[in-house]
Structure formats: C-alpha cells, structure tokens
Design a protein around this nucleic acid. Structure first.
Length: 871
RNA sequence: GCGAGCUUGGCGGAAUGGUAGACGCACAGGACUUAAAAUCCUGAGUCCAUAACGGACGUGCGGGUUCAAGUCCCGCAGCUCGCACCA
C-alpha cells in the first residue's frame, strides 16, 4: 500500500478543533464603536426566518457573504459580520394553533437548531451580536422608534380596505388569498374597511427615487423595479362639475376630479369613467339596484393577473352628465368602468378613445362617439383615422381649439396653464407608491405601542412604559386575534388622564422588524434603538447579500426607515446598503412516479436505463430542474451533506459551479467531485509538508521548474484577488484548481534547484487563498505547513509579486487577415521588427503569403502579429 | 402589453476588442488491482481528409464597425424573471 492512500482529511475533527480555536481567540468579534485607525467593512446577509430548517439557499447566501467577510478581514479591514433572526410571523402562530406549542418556545427552539447549523458551516460571524426580533429587547426599541415616528408625523391611522377572512377572523395579505378564498380556512374572503396604521412612506417618494441614482453598486434591475414601484408620473388633476347631480349628493360629490398625464387630449374626451369604488359610484348604488349589481360583479372578478388580463372592458352608464370646460354646447356621460382603479390617481379618468387603447375599446363597445385630437408626425390630417389601435405617441394637436398646431409637450403646458387660470385644474405629480399599511391583527408580532382612550383619543405609550410586551398566557383555540381575546392584556389606564383605556391590539408587519435590524446590529444591547458612534461608525452596510425576491418590499422599506431614522437623528446616512448582491436560487432535478407523485432524490437510484425507485424498482420520470422546494420534494438537507462530506465541501460546491448571481443546480456528482478535490488538495499540501521541511527551505537560484511554479503561484494570487473583487467565486475556484494541479505536478521535479522554496511558497499561498472558501481545511493545511504558528484567519491576504508573474517566453499568434495561421514562441517584449521577421519565416506563413502583398502589419506586443494582405 | 436579463462543446461555465472553449462534470482509453473502489495518466468543439502533415466551419439568427468581434453598434428570434387595465 502506497503512502498516499492512507492520507485522508478528517473533516469532523478539524471542524470541531478550529471552531474552538476561533472562538477562544475571539477572531470575529469587533467593538460597537469601530477603531478609527482601521478601515471598517460591514458585511451583511439578509437574516433568516427561523423556520427550524436551514436550506441550501441559506448555505449559498451565507457562504457568499462569508467569503467576502473573510477576504476583507484578511485584507486588514475591521469586519462587522453579524447574524440574527427575523423571528416574528405567522408560522409560529400556526404551530401554536395546530400543536399547542407557544410561539416563543417554538421560535427559540428553531433558532437553536439553525444556529448550530450555521456554526458548523464555519461562518465568520460575530455571534455576540445575535438577537431575534421577537425579543422585547429588540421590539421594545422598535416601539420607541414607532412613538417617535408618530411625533414626526410619519404615522397615520385611517380606514382602508382589507382582505377579511370571516372564519379565522383575521386580515390576510394579498398572497394569502387564493382564488378569492382564505389560504387556511378556505372561506370566501370579504373586502372590509378597517382602521389601520400606516407609515407615510409616500412622504419620501421623491428622495427614495432620487437615492437610487447614487446606488452604483446595486443591480440595475433592482433599481428599475424600485423606480417603477415608486412610479412617479407628471400630469394634471382636472375637476368636472356634474350637470345633474342626484338630490341625495352632498357638495363633495357634485364634482369629479380626474388625474391625467395627457391634459393635451382634453378635447378628445368622449366620456368620464369612475372606479366601481369611487364615492360617486358608492352613493349611486344606494338607490340604483342595477348599479349596485354591477359594482358587486366587479368585486367578484378575481384579482389574479390572469383574471384581469382576460376581463373585458365593461361599464354602466350612470345617467349623470358633466360639462366640458371648453366645449360649451355639449355634455358628456359619466360611466362606472371596471378598468378604473380606485387606488391610483383619483379613481376617475376622462376617456379619450383616440389616445388610449382602453378608452378606445370601451368607446367601441358602447358606441360612444369621439374626435381625433393628436396627429402623428408626418401624417395627413385628412387621411388619418383611428381604427382599432389608439395612437399613444406624441404628435400635433388637432380639433383642439386653442391647442391646434402645438406639439404634445407644448399642448400639455398650454392646457395646464389654462386650467390653472380657470381654477379647475392644476399640475400635479402622481405616485404609484402608496403608504405602508403595517397593521396585522395577529399575536406574534411587535405590539403597536399605542393606547386608545375614550377621553384623550390615541395616546402613544410613554417611553418609560416601554416595551409593551406580548402576554405569554395566550389562548389560540378561539378564532381571531389572541391579543383582542386576552382577558386582561388590553385593559390599561390612559397615560394622560388615567381613566380606563385600551391597548392597541394590532401588531406590526414583520417587514418593520427587518427595516432597521442592520442598524441595531452595530450596538445590539444599547438601551436606545441605536448608539450614536456605533451606528455612524459602521453604517452603511458595505456589502449586502440576499435574494432577488426582496428586490422591492424589504429593500424599499429599509431605505425608507433609514431616511426616517436620519430625519429623527438616530443616524446620519440615507442609504443603508452601499452595495447589494443578489444571489441565484439553488435548484435540483425533480422526480415523479407513474402516478405523477413527486419523489425525493434519496428515494431514487439512477441506472443505465434511467431512474428507478430504490425500494420498489418502479420507473421514475426525471423532470425539470426546479427550485428546491418541499412541495416538489427535491430538497437536499444541508445537514446530511455536512455530515457526509463536511462543511467545506458544501461551501466549495455552492460557489464553484457557476456565477453566484445565476441559479445553480445541486448535483450529487458535483458534491462528490468537490469532496474528491478537497482530499486531493489535502494530500498535495500534506506531501509538501512531509517532503519539504521548513528547515530545508533556502532561497537559492531557481531552476526553470521552480520559477514556473513561482509564476503560477503569483499569478494565482492576482487572479483570485481579482475574481473576489468581482464576486466571481467560480473563477477564483478554477484558479485554485490550477494552482493545486501545478503544485501536485511539481512533486515530479522536486529535486530541481529552488524547488523546495517554490513548493513551500505555493503551498502557503494556496492555503491562504483557500481560507475564505474552505476555512476549516485552510487552517488544517496551514497547520501542516507551519504547525502552531498563526492561523489563516490571523494572517494577511497574500500580495502577488508582479515581477514574478512575467513569463520567460511568450507564444505569439500569427494571423493573416485576422485568421490564426501559426504560432511562434519568443522571449517577452521582443522588438517588433524581430518578431515580424520571425513570423514571416514561419513555414505555414510563407505558404500563405505566397503570391500576395502585405499591405499592413499589425503588431500587438506579446500577443499578435496580423498580416493584412491582398491578392 | 411594459421592463430587465440570458442564449458559447453532451452539461455547468471561462475569455481588459487580440490564439474561443480556462476550470470542472459526464464520457472514452490506459496504468495500478485477483477484482472493485480510490488514485494516477491520456484523449476529446463539429465536419472533411490522412500513413502522417493538414484544411473548412464554429459563441441563437441577419446585418454593420474594425487589421481583428463571443466581446462594440443596428435589427430579429427563442428562453427566463419582474410588473401589469397605473390613465
């Protein structure tokens, strides 16, 4: 048996050992207030919801962040890299209802399981900073911020439509309503008006939009998604008086205001359309059963995208007519139309069929006459007519009285000016962004720190009475909000008048919890939400890593909260995340049996004839590669991988296969290949440590083999560093493979001069470069090479020596008319004429140049000679 | 409908405008072994051709710029994702 066959990396012992060493030395701890003499770097991954199970998506996310954190540490930065738990939310309550476990206990047990997994994966986290958002120490501070938001005028309580589940007696989020039914109860969902708490994010609409421009290190598509979500549009509001208002209309209902981005098309108006939820429609429904029916039908229509897509334009004529500000001899009908949205603009539009496809469809359907008021560029007025396609492009105004002949842009300005003079309209900026409703009628969330007093109204809980803690003796057997049902919790005395009063029983949307946790991490035990020097010392987060699914909500809310906190002097930055990286999903093949049931990967076996089920031998269909999910049973538990192959294997594989922003496929072959490589790396370094004792190393003249190895070593240092700067972990890993092979091959020429030095150098640098990726093995390798000295995590990142990277010979491509015809080998930086001379003497080139004239010769030093010929 | 991204061998992918296919997977052949596993070595874009040398084609498709294009520009197609009756 050869010596090498028994050398085997024992990952279990290594992981336990190095974990302890790092902990003991507090390697990853940093102070609340960063040392001003050391550059700071704040790395953060989106903190997890403690479901109890770590999945491969987490492994990929946190490994990416950890590589950055370890790399920056080695480069001399003081790195803040914390971890916590987004611990409020409905699953804990569901567990309580179905299994009788208290949400707190369930959550804390899940956290313990997941924390243990994260520790095994070797992430360089500052665990002292850990917190869970469900702890009063955290949400109590959040309540302080909330009270200040009230003082700042950024909180509002108002009526709003919600999805109400009449069985569970709770409000549901849109995504919890499936086909119009509650996701848990299956009961038809009702639209209900409830008093809700809102955070006035719309007050920051413009700054949030402007701020996107500074975010140079955010993915373009995330910025575009946010921009569209905020949705700024410029236009005008125009008020139309009703000609014949019904007698039961009060003054507010006697006119209808519309929002338009095309005031220039006002002369093309054919009708006015209001939303089924518009106050005028609601009032009319009271006395008109047909209108009430129509509105009810509109509400029944599904809200799914597909339903909207297919829904045809429908409406009902209200019989009400309005006057046109500039067309005195004509009035226009007011229709209720199913395509007008109540929550955008004013809930009413004027219909201009020639310039809007929806309006055109509507006019055709109900035979409403209209005029064409915009002539496209280059069209003849007497020949141009609208058929079935509206013209939404700018052009020249026609049939439009005082606007005639003006361009669309000029006409808009002229019209708005006229409307403003007449005091019936004005220029406005309209936003798609709406205020953030944060009320949830649930138990497991941060209580909104407010008291309702019959005498004093709404009274914020005074700071010295915070936190408002969740009661622990809660009954989940009744439907509805357990806080509402609790016998004593909500009954308190008013902080003002000391009379009997009631606590607010709504809790916060969990997105609130995650909107400032990154600031709290800088001083997690501070007695105020943040500590001045800590938060301003560490913020902003230099690199944020997470999933694209949070491109809008979480990231927008966090940006808003940071601005609000800045306004309230909690901190001094506007943008919380200087750089954002969004990683792809982890996918896996899916499998189905003959009955179409999903089959888990561990139940199948692949044979030459295809896949079969292990226990029964029945044939299995191999399906598409899909995102790992429980429902498709195609998940691989990180715990089983870590137990079989070790944490380093899992880490290396999730990084090695493809660029991190793309979706990756988890494969058994990939894992075993990774595991094989790591064993080879271990053997390679082990052999160096055995064959090249430290004492034998002298810096002696280098043989070709030795200087070749040194060149590869230094080129690898440069390439890996460069790849890490560009988040190209897969490329870095390819280069580490190359260095490993080169070092392995070098064993053959170990007797050459200078080889001891070159091999040691390669091995040491290889160990260092591997540190961010496979931290346990890197320490093990370093300890083989230089036992009981500094750990990898204590050593600086290697710096490439450029003078050693230069080649001793270069291969130059010889092209004829840009086509490769031969290559020649020269010394580097040989002078142009000599290279060209050599090139022309090359047999293959002579052949190609025969009978032709060289018109031009291109020379790119050390790379290319290109002969441009004719004939 | 609007927007973004992607398209390179059997597969994942690499490539500051300068030798396309690095690195890895899968595959094939060989060494070691009683055998297997593990390990090591070798091969491989496609097509044509050969004893050998060699040649043509080739980065979704069609154009363009350039001495030179996977890379830059214009147009098109397909796939993926996001938003979606936003007036």
């Amino acid at each position: 048996m050869s010596e090498t066959s028994i050398i085997f990396y024992d990952f279990q012992n290594a992981e336990r050992y190095w974990q302890k060493e790092w902990d003991k030395n507090h390697i990853f701890d940093v102070p609340d207030v960063p040392d001003p003499n050391i550059p700071k770097y704040y790395v953060l991954e989106m903190f997890p919801y403690p479901s109890g199970q770590l999945h491969m998506g987490h492994v990929r996310n946190y490994t990416l962040g950890d590589v950055v954190a370890r790399y920056k540490r080695a480069q001399g930065f003081s790195v803040l890299h914390p971890m916590g738990w987004d611990a409020f939310g409905l699953p804990a309550e569901n567990a309580a209802r179905s299994r009788g476990i208290s949400p707190a206990k369930w959550t804390m047990e899940n956290i313990a399981t997941m924390r243990a997994m994260l520790k095994r994966l070797g992430f360089s986290l500052n665990w002292d900073r850990e917190f869970a958002t469900c702890q009063p120490e955290y949400y109590g501070q959040q309540q302080k911020i909330f009270v200040n938001l009230i003082k700042e005028g950024l909180v509002e309580r108002r009526e709003s439509w919600v999805n109400w589940d009449p069985v569970d007696q709770t409000v549901l989020a849109n995504e919890q309503v499936i086909d119009g039914k509650g996701w848990r109860s299956g009961a038809p969902i009702e639209k209900k008006q409830l008093s809700q708490w809102f955070l006035k994010i719309t007050e920051f609409a413009q700054p949030l939009l402007n701020g996107l421009k500074q975010l140079d290190h955010w993915p373009e598509r995330v910025k575009i998604m946010q921009e569209r979500w905020i949705g700024r549009s410029e236009g005008a509001r125009i008020r139309f008086a009703l000609q014949n208002p019904p007698s039961d209309f009060d003054d507010a209902l006697k006119s209808i205001e519309v929002f338009t981005t095309r005031p220039d098309t006002l002369f093309g108006m054919a009708f006015l359309a209001i939303s089924p939820d518009h106050p005028v429609a609601v009032q009319l429904a009271k006395n008109h059963p047909d209108i009430a029916n129509f509105i009810a039908e509109c509400h029944q229509l599904g809200t799914s995208e597909e339903a909207i897509e297919k829904a045809e334009k429908r409406g009902i004529d209200t019989g009400i007519r309005i006057a046109h500000p500039f067309i005195s001899d004509q009035t226009f009908p007011v229709w209720i139309a199913n395509f007008v949205l109540m929550d955008y603009g004013t809930g009413a539009v004027f219909g201009c069929p020639c310039g809007d496809q929806r309006d055109l469809d509507f006019a055709r359907k109900y035979n409403l006459a209209f005029k064409t008021v915009v002539l496209p560029k280059g069209a003849q007025e007497d020949q141009f007519a609208i058929s079935d396609v509206a013209n939404t492009e700018p052009g020249i105004a026609i049939n439009s009285d005082f606007l005639n002949g003006l361009s669309t842009a000029e006409a808009k300005t002229a019209m708005i000016q006229r409307l403003e003079e007449m005091n019936i309209g004005k220029r406005v900026v309209n936003w798609r962004l709406r205020d953030w409703g944060i009320s949830r009628q649930r138990y497991w969330g941060c209580p909104i720190p407010v008291i309702h007093c019959p005498e004093c109204g709404i009274v914020p809980v005074p700071e010295d009475q915070l936190p408002v803690c969740l009661p622990e003796d809660v009954d989940f057997s009744m439907p509805g909000n357990p806080l509402e049902n609790h016998p004593t919790w909500k009954h308190v005395s008013c902080p003002h008048c000391h009379g009997p009063a009631q606590r607010e029983t709504d809790t916060c949307d969990t997105f609130v919890d995650s909107s400032w946790y990154f600031a709290r991490f800088t001083a997690p035990t501070a007695s105020s939400p943040v500590k001045d020097q800590a938060v301003n010392g560490w913020m902003p987060v230099d690199q944020y890593v997470g999933g694209i699914e949070h491109a809008i909500l979480h990231l927008l809310y966090a940006r808003f909260f940071t601005r609000a906190m800045h306004k309230m002097d909690y901190l001094k930055v506007d943008e919380p995340f200087a750089a954002l990286f969004t990683q792809g999903m982890v996918m896996h093949e899916s499998y189905k049996d003959a009955n179409g049931e999903w089959i888990a990967p561990e139940e199948i076996e692949r044979t030459s004839k295809g896949a079969i089920k292990k226990d029964t031998g029945e044939a299995i269909t191999i399906g598409r590669i899909e995102k790992m999910s429980k429902s498709k049973k195609n998940t691989i538990a990180p715990s089983t991988i870590i137990e079989r192959f070790g944490a380093d294997t899992a880490r290396w594989f999730v990084l090695s296969d493809n660029p991190p922003e793309r979706d990756m496929e988890w494969t058994e072959a990939g894992v075993t290949a990774t595991s094989r490589f790591l064993q080879r790396l271990y053997r390679t370094i082990h052999n160096v440590s055995q064959q090249v004792p430290i004492t034998s190393v002298k810096n002696e003249p280098l043989s070709t083999a030795a200087s070749d190895l040194r060149r590869i070593t230094h080129r690898t240092i440069a390439a890996v560093t460069d790849a890490l700067e560009n988040f190209a972990m897969n490329v870095a890993i390819a280069r580490l493979h190359e260095l490993t092979s080169a070092l392995n091959d070098a064993e053959k020429s170990s007797d050459q001069e200078g080889m001891n030095f070159a091999r040691r150098e390669a091995a040491l640098n290889l160990s260092m470069l591997c540190g961010p990726f496979i931290p346990y093995m890197a320490e093990t390798l370093m300890n083989l090479l230089e036992p009981n000295t500094q750990m990898v995590v204590q050593r600086p990142w290697p710096i490439a020596d450029k003078s050693l990277m230069a080649a001793t010979k270069v291969i130059i491509a010889i092209q004829i008319r840009g086509k490769l015809r031969a290559t020649i080998e020269t010394t580097p930086n040989m002078d142009e004429n000599s290279v060209i001379e050599l090139a022309r003497k090359e047999p293959a080139i002579i052949k190609f140049l025969e009978g032709k004239t060289i018109i031009k010769t291109i020379y790119v030093p050390n790379k290319i000679v290109n002969f441009v010929v004719n004939g």
